[in-house]
Write a protein that binds this DNA or RNA. Structure first.
Length: 220
DNA sequence: TGCCAGGCCGGGT
DNA sequence: ACCCGGCATGGC
């Protein structure tokens, strides 16, 4: 099967199973960015409590985080792990946001996608996945987000190789899919959900909605 | 009970 | 250009 069709077949199979996820639970674009930083290598459940604590203390705004002491932020986000480094990362991001865009996510997201992506990557603590999550889920920009689940699942179907790097996977998927923010939003959400519920450690499983599609075993 | 989670950085080869 | 240790909590 051509890559284009395979990617869409996988998409439809996941969507059949999970439905419309309309993803990134957050009350604002800024909260999306905060969540993107806090969820780095961390279970989302632990992040939810950290976000609730930040909101409870009135810290879910760029200026509030900028003015707060490190220990105040760290105390709120303790449950999300790596709380010291993540405090620094949140501080670095809000500084970037205030200096460059008057603290307004809408202003930041008004710029062109790829140049903005480069700027985000220059912020300490923002790597490729975090930058792309912000662009897609806070800015509604058409960029394909890659994470461990993406690598595992697309690798499982031989769409990408084991050693492919982030950018290679992203470019490959974007070459073979329409450049559509709504599609990429759903696609990534579905991959994460599928990865969570199935395909965790085993390369094959019986229940996974994807394991019968275009697998190595099917072709050979 | 260990292993893992929606990574990233900095230093070393 | 790759590889690795560090960062840390809570869930299953």
């Amino acid at each position: 099967m051509p890559t284009d069709d395979l990617l869409m077949t996988i998409y439809r199979a996941m969507e059949r199973h999970f439905g419309d996820l309309s993803w990134w639970p957050a009350d604002s674009p800024f909260e999306v960015a905060v969540g993107a930083i806090l969820t780095q290598n961390t279970n989302w459940k632990n992040v939810e409590r950290a976000i609730a604590a930040l909101k409870g203390r009135g810290f879910m705004t760029p200026t509030a985080i900028a003015k707060a002491e490190d220990v105040e932020i760290a105390a709120c986000i303790r449950s999300s792990g790596y709380y010291n480094v993540k405090t620094k990362r949140l501080k670095a991001f809000v500084q970037f946001l205030e200096e460059g865009y008057g603290g307004e996510m809408e202003t930041m997201c008004a710029g062109d996608m790829w140049p903005l992506r480069e700027k985000l990557l220059g912020v300490n603590g923002i790597g490729e996945e975090t930058a792309d999550s912000i662009l897609l889920y806070a800015g509604n920009m058409p960029i394909f987000v890659v994470d461990q689940y993406t690598k595992r699942i697309l690798g499982r179907h031989d769409i990408v190789g084991e050693r492919w790097k982030y950018g290679e996977i992203q470019q490959h998927c974007m070459r073979h899919l329409p450049h559509d923010a709504v599609l990429y939003n759903q696609y990534h959400a579905l991959l994460v959900n599928t990865g969570k519920h199935f395909c965790r450690r085993r390369p094959l499983c019986d229940e996974c909605p994807l394991c019968s599609i275009g697998s190595r075993e099917d072709r050979t």
